[in-house]
């Protein structure tokens, strides 16, 4: 095994441009260290991103919230800017693992790992966030979070690329929300989760709802969005909303053994979301 700690983006690009197939980027290590230990037969060349200060900055610039890729879940949980402009991400991050894991695990690592059960990814999707990906040559590409994960633990990231930041547009009057169901109250992996953004004071603005942990990437619940929009416009039916969420689950994982559980569990989360929006509208 080899290991290095670049101290700047330039140094990182240089390493990425020169190293071979075994190269792996590491930040919090909460997933990768376990993987490395599980496969002693593999040759790893680890490149630490936590030594690059620019990658952990959180800033508000030009109506965008910019979150550096190595910002931790703890940073997401406590940053006033994230709490204000991206509440769903803050709520999702605060539900991840234990205090120790939130202190190390990063938002970029969560995305790059591409876990279907990730909590921050549906939250980012409902806020129309985008991932800024850089290559060793300095080229930047921007990917929507919704399309970032391409399959089980696989993403659009190619060899020699790294996530530098997540950009979240700041929209006037937009609120967001996140909740999950796991096997226990805390320190638990999502069996299913739900993230939403909405404009309580602007009925014509779009509602965005994503369900996580039913497919490799977050699944948009369009019919449920329509029903929640009706609630914001002054009508709307809770039963129809919950049925729409449940139908989205059924359409996404037909025949899967977890379907009977998940299509009911999503109604519990939907019930919480509906009541939350009603409370906000009051």
């Amino acid at each position: 095994m080899r290991a290095c700690r670049p101290s700047s983006l330039d140094e990182l690009r240089s390493v990425l441009g020169s190293d071979g197939e075994a190269l792996k980027l590491i930040a919090g290590g909460t997933d990768l260290v376990i993987e490395v230990r599980a496969h002693p037969e593999r040759e790893y060349s680890l490149v630490d991103l936590t030594s690059i200060p620019e990658l952990s900055l959180i800033s508000v610039e030009a109506r965008q919230l910019c979150v550096g890729a190595t910002s931790t879940h703890r940073d997401m949980e406590t940053s006033p800017s994230v709490i204000k402009h991206a509440t769903a991400i803050s709520m999702a991050a605060s539900s991840v693992g234990s205090t120790q894991i939130r202190n190390r695990g990063t938002v970029g690592g969560n995305l790059a790992h591409g876990s279907a059960a990730a909590d921050t990814i549906p939250a980012m999707a409902c806020l129309e966030a985008e991932a800024v990906v850089e290559s060793c040559t300095g080229n930047q590409t921007v990917h929507s979070i919704e399309n970032f994960i391409t399959g089980r633990n696989s993403t659009v990231l190619e060899k020699g690329q790294f996530i530098s930041s997540i950009k979240i547009p700041i929209r006037e009057g937009r609120l967001s929300w996140f909740a999950k169901v796991g096997s226990r109250r805390a320190v638990t992996i999502s069996k299913i989760n739900l993230a939403a953004s909405f404009y309580p004071d602007i009925p014509n603005k779009p509602v965005k709802i994503y369900i996580g942990a039913i497919a490799s990437s977050p699944t948009r619940a369009s019919k449920a969005e329509e029903e929640l929009s009706r609630l914001i416009s002054g009508s709307g039916c809770k039963d129809s909303f919950l049925r729409a969420l449940s139908d989205t689950v059924a359409d996404t994982i037909p025949g899967r053994s977890s379907l009977p559980y998940k299509r009911e569990a999503i109604k519990g989360l939907g019930d919480q979301l509906w009541d939350h929006v009603k409370e906000v509208l009051r």
């Binding site: 290590g29 909460t30 260290v33 630490d48 030594s51 703890r74 234990s98 120790q100 202190n103 190390r104």
Partner: peptide, 15 residues
């Protein structure tokens, strides 16, 4: 200043 699980941190990251 933060609690971490030392089994998920590589030693070289503690530089």
């Amino acid at each position: 200043g933060k609690a971490v699980t030392s089994c998920t941190v590589m030693a070289f990251q503690a530089e």
